[in-house]
Every structure is written in C-alpha cells, then in structure tokens.
C-alpha cells in the first residue's frame, strides 16, 4: 500500500512568481526559509508523489462548468495557463498519477463524494506556485484535486474536512509502493478583485492556524460568514482544512506567517507518523 508520509499547506500568492521584486528582502527570505523547511520535509520523507489540493481560478475551468470536487486524471499536464505569472505560459509539464486519481474517484464514490473526473486541465497558480519552490525540477509525480473555493455555493468547511479524510484513506488504500505528500494551497485571509481588496485579517488567520495546529474539530465549524468578513479569497482555507482532515488527529506547526500587504501568508506542516 502507498504511504502518506507528509502533509503540509501554504499560501499560493501568485506575486511570488509574478512580482518577486515587490517583496521586502527580509520577507522574501522568510518565504524562502519556509519553502526550504517544507522542501526538507519532502526530501527526508522520501516523497515521490505530491497530491495538491487547490481551487482553480477560472484560468482553465470556465464558471459554467466548475466542479465542487474534481480530480485531474491526465497522464501529463502543462502550465501555467496565465500569461501574467512570470513563468512562460505552457513552459512547465508535470507527470500525473492517473491510477491514484482513479483510486480516489472510486473511494470517493464509496464514501459519498461524487468527484468530477477532469481528464486534462492546464495548470494555474493554485497548483504551480508552491511547487515552483518546493520541487523546482518538477521531477516527482503530481495529482491535482480541485475544491471549489471560488464559485458559490461552496462546500462547507466540514464537508472539505471530510473530503480530506476520504482522500487520506484513499491514498493509504492505494496498492502502490509510492510515498505520498499532501499539499493544500491558498488563503489565508485576503480579498481578490473586490472593493475591499488589500485587506488582511490577522486575528482570523491566527485563530485558524491555532485550530489547524491542534487539528481541532472546531476548525470544521468555520462559517462562510466568517470567511466573507475576512475577504473572498479566505475561502481557500478549505484546502488547508482538507489536509487536516486527511491526517485527522495529527498536530501541526506553523512554519511561517507574514502579513504581506493584501494577503495573510502562512505555511504549516503536520506531524505525520
């Protein structure tokens, strides 16, 4: 059976790729140290497969055809799809893991999660940003699970926690010698494209990180109203919560947090036995 050997989460703020010059040197260094810590975890754990849980931002999936929970089952995928990400469009090709995608589809159906199979999709910054720093050679295998964090009605946070739990069980039940890491990306508090863009709610972020580090069941009770108040982009914390669900009971640690103008930025990892 496959082994789930690492579980982590990070913001995927696209300016890390599109506008690195806008970061103060000390803040940039903080990000690099954070990614370095997560990279070391991947290396130490002997990870050969990374399952990314992130929303897609309508760069490749249109709003009239968007899954609540989706799995990308293509053998290879290419990105970025954006023309503004600071990485040439279509210059990155990653190896997929169709067998694991199909395993998750089947396990999901058994557990009440009817995922959408997405045969191929161009990769956007939700998938690419963190991995650009974590595995810059793109030499592992990657599976993208898409959660709807952007197009209401959204699945509840509780539902996303349970989705993650199902994903964790599916990985562990997968008949493969692979060593798998889970990476949730997005958030933390921020607003995208709305009149309140620029806002950050550090109190919300601190409470969220505390709940996640304790892997507290209370994290499942976070409401849409709370996230709306912290900015529309805050809904992406569902991707962190799903990772917590996959390793239910495991405690976590904050690797870094920084109030970057316009986005509460953090990274964390869980203690996976």
């Amino acid at each position: 059976m496959a082994h789930l050997v690492a579980a982590m989460a990070s913001v995927h703020i696209p300016s890390l790729l599109a506008a690195p010059h806008r970061f103060a040197p000390a803040v940039w260094e903080k990000f690099q140290q954070g990614f370095g810590t997560l990279r070391k975890t991947l290396t130490t754990a002997g990870v050969d497969t990374i399952v990314v849980i992130s929303d897609e931002h309508f760069n490749a999936l249109a709003p009239n055809c968007y899954p609540t929970f989706g799995v990308v089952t293509a053998g290879t995928c290419t990105g970025p799809v954006e023309n503004w990400l600071g990485v040439p469009r279509g210059s990155i090709t990653v190896q997929g893991v169709p067998e694991l995608g199909e395993t998750i589809l089947r396990e999901g159906a058994h557990q009440g999660f009817d995922l959408t199979r997405i045969g191929d999709v161009h990769l956007d910054h939700g998938f690419l940003t963190c991995l650009h720093f974590l595995t810059p050679e793109w030499d592992l295998s990657y599976l993208w699970l898409i959660q709807n964090c952007v197009l209401p009605p959204l699945p509840s946070v509780r539902r996303c926690y349970d989705f993650g739990r199902m994903v964790g069980e599916a990985i562990r039940a997968w008949e493969s010698p692979r060593r798998v890491a889970l990476l949730g990306t997005g958030g933390l508090s921020h607003a995208v494209g709305t009149p309140d863009m620029g806002r950050v709610d550090t109190a919300f972020d601190a409470r969220l990180l505390e709940l996640l580090c304790a892997n507290s069941p209370a994290v499942r009770e976070i409401t849409d109203t709370e996230m709306d108040a912290a900015g529309n982009g805050t809904h992406e914390i569902r991707n962190w919560v799903a990772v917590a669900g996959a390793v239910a009971g495991a405690r976590g640690e904050v690797i870094m947090y920084e109030n970057v103008p316009g986005c509460g930025c953090g990274m964390m990892q869980f203690e996976v036995a």
Binding site: A18, F58, N59, P63, W84, V150, L151, G193
Partner: peptide
Amino acid sequence: HPYILAQFAL
C-alpha cells in the same frame, strides 16, 4: 466574478 475580472486586468 471578481477573480475573473482581476485576472483579466492582470
């Protein structure tokens, strides 16, 4: 959608 509009701008 604000995500679409902001990224169109970008």
